[in-house]
Design a protein around this nucleic acid. Structure first.
Lengths: 203, 203
DNA sequence: TAGATTGTTAATCGATTAACAATC
DNA sequence: TAGATTGTTAATCGATTAACAATC
């Protein structure tokens, strides 16, 4: 769905008005029936003989993906990765707002990073209520991850983006997305190694 | 495969000698037949009635995954994300060695980061041959990504880990792994939004 | 009307699970 | 021998693709 949205946005900047399932499929390397099925799942967006009206479909997909609203997010753990993510432009461009930074290290608490002051983790509950935090990005060490996740969830956070290489348990009703860079590296190594024997993987 | 390896390593630190497909499956939330099939694909590692010998299977999996050797890697683009990744401990713990840093910005070239001096990108070819670079991590802006990828590939790099939010084209024989943080965020937002209607996703 | 393209149903394909003979 | 567990074949399930009536 995100990928469809990007193709549509790209087509819009190229000045196109409509796009057919065949065109969308080709640009993403998919089957046209697949595209129609995916889009039809959420509603009747296309018109037979014409295709999909780009100007109608883009806002519809934004709504479906939930990026037409603001998602107040906290970032916990201001190590190297955490600091990099605060400034990552991809976060803001899609309706995400990191509105609070937390850490436990007294050397880091109080610092200003990108216009935000790093707060002590034990003020999380107060700030979560105040700012209406919905998402939390975890850049803490593996050992600390579950504790922070529990804290965040108990304060009403409903989505976690976890960069710690630790398997987290969250209650039903809370979304969890793991970004495990070591795992990605292992997969890259495996792919490179297998290439010698003609095994190819899609990008 | 990576996940099996982690479970095996974790079991080894707990002092276990063998693990059955059922135990492995349970700890990862899979079916036992699935585990046997995955492992059998690479060889006959198990013994009926006993299970899998942990001390034999760990090195075997390491070899299969290719993390039993060194992968000299370059990192291109020393912005916030790039600097964070250089210091990311997950990179070294698995046999990955970032042995060269490159950037085009004259303000960054020449700086020392984590014991390495940032080199000008136009010395890539020379260094690639000298160090035997096999992998490259791209933390450059989206516009620059394809150019850097082409350069790296032409210098013999066989695997790319791309953090730029840009679709890259690489020739067959070269592996590409994209880490698109904005995409991950969109997926998190979608999950959180769908939760209200009882749609649940696996972690 | 003829050509294009949708939404959806039926057919195909692949992947997951169950079952079981072989083996420790 | 009896219990446990493998590797693998057969059965099931779900997802992808093809086909087509409906519609612009």
């Amino acid at each position: 769905m995100s990928l469809y949205l990007r193709q549509l946005e790209s087509a819009q900047t190229r000045g196109l008005q409509t796009l057919s399932s065949g065109q969308l499929a080709a640009s993403l390397g998919l089957n046209d029936a697949q595209v129609r099925k995916d889009l039809a799942f959420f509603g009747h967006f296309g018109r037979p003989g014409i295709g999909y009206q780009i100007s109608d479909l883009i806002p519809a997909l934004r709504g479906i993906l939930g990026i037409d609203r603001d998602w107040p997010a906290a970032l916990v753990g201001l190590g190297n990765l955490g600091r990099a993510l605060v400034q990552y432009r991809g976060f803001r461009s899609r309706g995400f707002h990191i509105v609070a930074l937390f850490d436990t290290d007294p050397k880091i608490v109080g610092r200003r990073i990108d216009g935000l002051t790093v707060l002590a983790l034990d003020t999380f509950a107060v700030k979560a209520a105040e700012l209406g935090l919905v998402l939390a990005v975890l850049c803490v060490p593996a050992e600390a991850a579950q504790g922070v996740a529990d804290l965040a969830v108990s304060c009403g956070v409903r989505g976690l983006l976890n960069f710690a290489p630790a398997p987290l348990a969250v209650p039903p009703g809370v979304s969890l997305l793991n970004v495990d860079l070591s795992l990605q590296l292992e997969q890259l190594a495996y792919q490179v190694q297998s290439l010698g024997r003609g095994i190819n993987q899609p990008a």
